[in-house]
């Protein structure tokens, strides 16, 4: 049986891992390579790195870091932030990343998904989306897509966008709830479940994890295929193994040996 994946997320700014609440008030946490090796040795199933200032600073992703990660760990990892064209995608994959995550770029140029999928395979292309709860007629699902780290509202409905991205050929979707991000009060279950229910590709829940129970909830109630965690492990409050032990107890399929 396929295991549910647990994916620590490393937000990187100037080669340092950082974490904020709702994309603000970031604090520095440590060296991305060291943290990646620790998480990989500790049993995480995958990792994701976001170069969080690349997009806002309109520069390309830090390829040196991607190469260093690829030399240091031998589990899958995705890289996002600062991808602005097919060449950037190619460079990130060539540097050794398993997947490239697009967010703002895909909103502004949706065809990049189709082009990337055609050239590198759907499995390499991850759509990251940052939906926020709204009450607007143009967003019937109740969630609007934001970009550039919650700085811009797009007027796009989150559910429509997920379906469109699937049709364009994206391999999986990371649903990062802006409202839940960094709160540690649990994933936004309705939002995750709504999107997981509407698409045939894997959905990764993101934003809000604070306890192992939150992961159990999003796997069982929202049918997420994977869950991103950050603060709860970055602060040292939980290890990946502790989370996994709890989920195994709860009867959720989890990779037990590594």
């Amino acid at each position: 049986m396929l295991s549910k994946r647990i994916i620590p997320c490393l937000d990187v700014r100037n080669k340092i891992v950082t974490k904020g609440v709702k994309f603000q008030n970031n604090v520095d946490l440590g060296d991305p390579i060291e943290m990646a090796v620790n998480y990989s040795d500790g049993g995480c199933d995958e990792l994701v790195f976001y170069d969080i200032t690349a997009s806002a600073e309109r520069r390309s992703i830090d390829l040196e870091m991607v190469e260093e990660v690829a030399r240091s760990i031998h589990i899958p990892f995705a890289v996002g932030g600062g991808i602005s064209n097919l060449t950037d995608m190619y460079n990130v994959l060539l540097a050794g990343a398993e997947k490239v995550s697009v967010n703002s770029l895909a909103v502004h140029q949706p065809d990049i998904i189709a082009e990337g999928a055609k050239q590198f395979g759907s499995q390499c292309i991850v759509l990251g989306m940052d939906p926020v709860r709204v009450s607007k007629p143009e967003c019937p699902s109740g969630y609007e897509i934001t970009t550039r780290g919650f700085r811009e509202f797009t007027g796009m409905d989150a559910l429509d966008w997920a379906k469109k991205a699937q049709d364009l050929g994206v391999g999986e979707i990371v649903v990062n709830s802006v409202d839940a991000d960094g709160t540690r009060e649990g994933y936004e279950l309705d939002l995750t479940g709504m999107i997981a229910d509407a698409v045939q590709i894997p959905v990764v829940a993101s934003g809000g994890a604070g306890t192992p129970q939150h992961l159990a909830d999003v796997f069982e109630k929202s049918h997420a295929d994977a869950a991103i965690i950050a603060s709860m492990v970055h602060t040292g409050e939980y290890t990946v193994k502790q989370i996994k032990d709890d989920l195994i107890q709860a009867g959720i399929p989890i990779r037990k040996k590594w």
Partner: peptide, 16 residues
């Protein structure tokens, strides 16, 4: 061929 709507294709992840 998915047996249920929760069998996502592609299969992505760790399996026995």
């Amino acid at each position: 061929q998915p047996k249920s709507k929760w069998d996502k294709v592609p299969e992505i992840g760790w399996n026995q």
